[in-house]
C-alpha cells in the first residue's frame, strides 16, 4: 500500500512540476501584456484606451476552455501551430493579461492625484513622476491582488488537460485509469493544489509584512 502511494505521489509531483511551469510562464506572459494594457488605459489617448479596453473586455468574457480550443485547434487553420504546452501558456497568459491589467490599472489609479500634482510641482516630468512616484506605489498595491490571480491561474492550468498537456491532473488521471482508485488519487491531486496555493499565499503575506511601509497596512487603500 505504501509503495503504491509513493509511486503515485512521484507521478503526481512530476505533474505538479509541469503545473508550476505553466503557471509561472502564463503569469509572466500575462504581466508583460497587462502592463501595456494598463498603461494604455490610464495614460493613453482615447483611441488607444479604446483598443486596450476592447481587448481586456473580450478576453475577460470568454471561458478559458474556448480560448484554449481557439488557440490550439483554431489557429492551425491559419497555419499557426503550437504544441499543447505552449498553447496552454498562450491561452492562460492572454486571459490573465486581461485580469492583471485591471490590477495594475486600479493600482495606478489608487496613487492620489495630489501626489502626482506635488511631483509635477517640484518639476518632475511625466516620466519621472511615473518612475519615482506612481510606479513604486502601484507595485505595492498590486501584490495582494496578484496572489489572488496566481491562485486562479494555478488552478486553471488543470484545464490544459483538455488539449493534452501532461500536467498534474492528467498524471493523476493516468494513475486512476490503471488503479481504479479515483477518490484517493484525485484527493492527492487536490492536496497538492492546496499546498501550492496555500503555501504561496502564506509566503507572500509574510513577504508583504516584511516589506511593509507604515500607512500601507490597509491593502490598496490610499490614506492621507
Amino acid at each position: 500500500m505504501m509503495g503504491f502511494f509513493l509511486n503515485s505521489m512521484e507521478v503526481i509531483l512530476r505533474g505538479a512540476g509541469v503545473t508550476v511551469k505553466l503557471t509561472v510562464a502564463s503569469l509572466l506572459l500575462g504581466a508583460i501584456i497587462a502592463i501595456f494594457v494598463a498603461l494604455a488605459q490610464v495614460y493613453g489617448k482615447w483611441w488607444i484606451n479604446l483598443i486596450a479596453t476592447t481587448y481586456e473586455r473580450i478576453l475577460r468574457s470568454i471561458p478559458i476552455l474556448i480560448i484554449m480550443f481557439m488557440v490550439f485547434f483554431g489557429l492551425p487553420t491559419f497555419g499557426i501551430r503550437f504544441d499543447p504546452f505552449l498553447a496552454a501558456i498562450i491561452s492562460l497568459g492572454l486571459r490573465s493579461s486581461a485580469y492583471q491589467s485591471q490590477i495594475y490599472r486600479g493600482a495606478l489609479l489608487a496613487v492620489s492625484e495630489g501626489q502626482i500634482m506635488a511631483a509635477r510641482s517640484v518639476g518632475m516630468t511625466g516620466i519621472q513622476t511615473f518612475l519615482h512616484i506612481s510606479f513604486p506605489q502601484a507595485a505595492r498595491f498590486s501584490v495582494a491582488p496578484l496572489t489572488n490571480e496566481f491562485t486562479i491561474v494555478l488552478k486553471d492550468t488543470s484545464i490544459a488537460y483538455a488539449i493534452g498537456v501532461t500536467e498534474l491532473l492528467r498524471e493523476g488521471t493516468y494513475i486512476v485509469s490503471t488503479t481504479y482508485d479515483p477518490l484517493l488519487i484525485y484527493s492527492m491531486c487536490a492536496a497538492v493544489y492546496f499546498i501550492m496555493t496555500f503555501g504561496t499565499n502564506k509566503f507572500v503575506s509574510l513577504l508583504e509584512k516584511g516589506f511593509a511601509i507604515p500607512g500601507y497596512e490597509v491593502r490598496g487603500v490610499e490614506r492621507g
Partner: peptide
Amino acid sequence: VEKLRQRIGMVFQEFNLFNH
C-alpha cells in the same frame, strides 16, 4: 514647463506627501 516649476515651490492644503 518643468524647468519653470523648479523655480516655483508649492505647498498644498492636503500636504500631498509621497507616501512610500
